[in-house]
């Protein structure tokens, strides 16, 4: 289906799952941030699923969710977790693997 192959940017199929805790301002802000980032950097090849952990608590355990909000990259593998309201765009991109994280240890120190 994707003629450009897996290496071509923008052609990878992303499956993301966003866990939010209720419809708080922070939840809404997070959803907005995610939509904006996806529109800008991923394009149409993304499948976003938003889950309210208050409604589906069992999924929180199954997906090892601790913090809220939590964004989970289900595919491509490996799974990645990004926590927070996704307001720091470069970090989100790094977390999603859209831009490579070269020196992750330095990042934590910063």
């Amino acid at each position: 289906m994707t003629d450009g192959g897996p290496s071509a940017p923008g052609s990878t199929q992303y499956r993301l799952r966003l866990f939010i805790a209720g419809s708080t301002p922070r939840s809404r802000r997070t959803i907005e941030n995610l939509r904006r980032i996806c529109d800008r950097h991923i394009g149409p090849n993304v499948d976003i699923e938003v889950i309210d952990i208050y409604q589906q608590a069992e999924l929180a355990e199954a997906n090892r969710v601790v913090a809220a909000p939590t964004l989970l990259r289900l595919s491509p593998l490996p799974q990645r977790q990004i926590i927070g309201d996704l307001s720091d765009e470069p970090r989100v991109l790094r977390g999603l693997g859209i831009i490579p994280s070269r020196e992750p240890t330095d990042e934590h120190g910063a």
Binding site: R26, I53, V66, A68, T70
Partner: peptide, 18 residues
């Protein structure tokens, strides 16, 4: 820590719910 990227505000509601 190596599997989690932090971006912006969060709380531990996930833990509470679990």
């Amino acid at each position: 820590r190596s599997e989690i990227e932090e971006s912006g505000e969060y709380d531990l509601e996930g833990l509470f719910i679990r």
